[in-house]
């Protein structure tokens, strides 16, 4: 019989939750990596890579925060997450924009037989 009031029980629950969240994050990272390898062109690959950066990293960091508990380390992890949250999309945007300016056309546009307007895509990114 599990003693729901004992601290050990909640401790182990916390560990398990943390482990689960981290594993989930790792799964997303794996999916992202597969995407980078399998997707056909630069833009779609970047899309896959950004999954790694955002969802994967968020979950892993979140799991680690649960693990670290209420401490300065959690705060540092939060800051790391915030940093990633800001920089990762900006970096993806910059890379995509640079690729577009350099003349790399998205495969998607050709696929549908119609050209995607460059400025439009830049704003979307």
């Amino acid at each position: 019989m599990v003693d729901l009031t004992s601290p050990e029980f909640w401790e182990s629950v916390r560990m398990m939750v943390a482990a689960g969240v981290i594993l989930l994050g790792a799964l997303f990272v794996l999916v992202g990596s597969v995407g980078v390898l399998r997707f056909p062109d630069f833009y779609t690959r970047m899309h896959a890579a950004s999954v790694t950066d955002t969802l994967g990293a968020t979950l892993v960091l979140g799991g680690m925060m649960i693990l670290a508990g209420w401490s300065i380390n959690s705060f540092k992890l939060l800051m790391t997450w915030l940093f990633l949250f800001i920089t990762s999309p900006a970096a993806s945007n910059a890379a995509a924009h640079a690729a577009l300016v350099a003349g790399l056309e998205p495969l998607l546009g050709k696929w549908n037989g119609e050209k995607v307007e460059k400025p439009e895509l830049a704003k979307e990114g």
């Binding site: 800001i86 920089t87 945007n93 910059a94 300016v101 830049a122």
Partner: peptide
């Protein structure tokens, strides 16, 4: 404005 996002983000980041 093509670097707008970068400009905003970097202005946020550089002091940090």
């Amino acid at each position: 404005d093509s670097h707008l996002i970068l400009r905003v983000v970097s202005k946020l980041l550089i002091p940090l």
